[in-house]
Design a protein around this nucleic acid. Sequence first.
DNA 1: GTCTATACTCTGATAGAC
DNA 2: GTCTATCAGAGTATAGAC
Lengths: 207, 207
Amino acid sequence: MAKQQAADRPLTRIQQKNRQTILDAALEVFSQHGFRGATLDQIAEVAGLSKPNLLYYFPSKEAIHAELLSGLLDTWLDPLRALDAAGDPVAEILAYVRRKLELSRDFPRESRLFANEILQGAPRMMEALQGDLKALVDEKAAILRGWAETGRIADLPPHHLIFSIWAMTQHYADFDVQVRAVLGPGHDPYAEAEDFLDLLFRKLLVP
Amino acid sequence: MAKQQAADRPLTRIQQKNRQTILDAALEVFSQHGFRGATLDQIAEVAGLSKPNLLYYFPSKEAIHAELLSGLLDTWLDPLRALDAAGDPVAEILAYVRRKLELSRDFPRESRLFANEILQGAPRMMEALQGDLKALVDEKAAILRGWAETGRIADLPPHHLIFSIWAMTQHYADFDVQVRAVLGPGHDPYAEAEDFLDLLFRKLLVP
DNA sequence: GTCTATACTCTGATAGAC
DNA sequence: GTCTATCAGAGTATAGAC
């Protein structure tokens, strides 16, 4: 049985492709309905596979969900990691805002998967939030505070400044249907958001 | 049978109290797990009632959820409705931000219920979003545009300005666990947010 | 008005044929 | 590797005793 193959044996191309198909379908369903609201039936239908076949590739519903979550936080934080204390303060922050907005635009389902997990009280991510996430934010907040104290950007509470960047960029992915319903047809929310957020933070950060 | 009582017969005090107990418990569960992820078992347990008893007061799970949603958008938009074209522009907007943040602080479960509905693609609210919501936002956006054109506030795209207010205030309710995980103990997120958002929009709105 | 019992469907997961 | 068949448990909802 393939299931019992040695852990170091690489997956075949077909296996990799099917795993990817399943994960993509699962992302679609989990990001919309959350863990409990999603069903294997739905995921199987979206993936175009049978339910038992899903469970041939993954041991359980939990395992599929865990696979999606693992790495998600890392991807989500990469733009913040790139914030460079040696760079130009305003340019660094604006670049961070832009990259974060690009993530929302290019990976809205991942954003909603994350949002669902947090809304549910982060039962599967709390550790990461209090560990890696807090550590990284504290580190970068210290950089922001340094810039503020030397008068290179406005004096704002750094943690809440970061929250505001998260809130505004993720809003366009998580509340996409509301944004489009309010704007009406003929708009490109992300293109407009890019200009608006650039303007907003440029003005906000002036000392 | 009480179920068959005339529609105009008022509910007894006990009935009103039980209905309220159920709705409160349902809000707790629906706001955390979304419609599909929530179960009547959970709601019944939180309410301290039996499952069949829930279904004595409400005809179905859908009906409980619908009751919670109806009126929610209205409550949510009341602060925006209060935005007065005749008032002082900056003061009006800052007051709106403050009232919106107070809603997040005082009714975080309602905020998360709404977020869940939008994340799921707003299957039960799309009409209201495209109708009442869009109409009100367009109306208030026109006021903001007027203020901008006469140089009383900065020239910003009014719809996105409103989105940014929604995003930042609701973030503190919807992502509460993340905010608290990052800030660590000894913080009052909403108190800090009030000062920060006041500062942010005060600075942003200067022409 | 509230409970126990239960009907019936959905859901996650397994067995076993091919 | 993939399918059909199926199980056990959970889920919504109803019937009927009290």
